[in-house]
């Protein structure tokens, strides 16, 4: 994996259509390109992502929205033949700086995956996994507190508090996904990336996760990739529309869904393709 920065020029974010929050963005991406071998998966994407908001990435399959999400915590590092250029900063730190430790980056940028993927361990050990590997606690009591706090934050505590030593894989799909969210929260990240977190869940479990996202945005920067435009409209404050590797349009969710500037966005949200 190489990350040449020579080609990066100071790009500009697309002009905001509605007023933005008054604080500087949490994540700033400029002229990001991603190649898988010869395939140009992300083309010159520049975007700002703000704190205490849910930002939704929407677009048809294969448009690069998941790829771009994974670039943000360098999960693409483990894919052979993947190459990233451009500049991405998290609170001012260049995340592709060779001096930056990817382990620490991922502790700051947590991730929840499409399919719930609890480890085949107990519920407790699943949540305690992150704090343990990062050495966040000094005593068992502190660890217990983090586990309880994270499970409460993920709205799972009441359902599992009496069976913390049961395997996480024994929970239902929706509970597993909330367990994975609790697992991500336990390392106190700044950003939580969610890659279609509800696509394997039923409507009731989906509603719970969406409610949870709305709560979590008080404390975290949340980015969600979703196939469901209704979901993007329900949970997000800002929406970015990707198409064939291009970031077509980004703006407030309300503006994207009611007054899209680009013809392709209009076609997509009205269901003409995708």
């Amino acid at each position: 994996m190489e990350t040449p920065f020579s080609s990066a020029q100071p790009g500009t974010a697309p002009p905001p259509a509605v007023p933005l929050p008054n604080e500087p963005p949490s994540i700033v991406a400029r002229n990001v390109n991603v190649w898988y071998g010869d395939k140009h998966a992300i083309k010159n994407v520049s975007i700002d992502i703000y704190r205490r908001q849910v930002t939704a990435f929407i677009g048809p399959s294969g448009c690069g929205k998941s790829t771009f999400l994974r670039v943000l915590n360098r999960m693409n590092d483990i894919i052979e033949g993947c190459r990233v250029t451009g500049k991405i900063t998290l609170d001012g730190d260049d995340i592709y700086d060779p001096r930056l430790d990817v382990v620490q980056l991922r502790a700051r940028v947590g991730m929840v995956f499409q399919k719930p993927n609890p480890f085949p361990k107990s519920i407790y050990d699943n949540v305690a996994y992150g704090p343990r590997i990062h050495g966040l606690t000094r005593s068992k009591k502190e660890l217990d507190e983090i586990v309880e706090k994270s499970l409460r934050r993920a709205a799972l505590w009441d359902e599992v508090k009496d069976r913390l030593d049961e395997p996480g894989t024994a929970l239902s799909g929706g509970q597993q996904q909330r367990l994975c969210i609790a697992r991500a929260i336990a390392v106190s990240p700044d950003v939580i990336l969610m890659d279609e977190p509800c696509s394997a869940l039923d409507p009731i479990a989906t509603a719970k996760i969406e409610e949870l996202m709305d709560e979590l945005r008080q404390d975290y920067t949340i980015i969600i990739v979703t196939h469901s435009m209704q979901q993007a409209a329900r949970v997000s404050q800002r929406t970015a529309f990707f198409h064939l590797g291009d970031l077509v349009e980004v703006g407030s969710t309300e503006q994207i869904f009611t007054r899209p500037q680009d013809r392709r966005t209009q076609d997509y949200i009205t269901g003409r393709f995708g």
Partner: peptide
């Protein structure tokens, strides 16, 4: 692969992932 990604996504190193997730699984 999802278990590997889950572990890496929490900031685990490759050694930690092997020792704590892959070998037990």
């Amino acid at each position: 692969q999802s278990l590997r990604e889950g572990s890496y996504g929490l900031g685990a190193t490759q050694a930690e992932t092997i020792r704590l997730v892959l070998l037990p699984a």
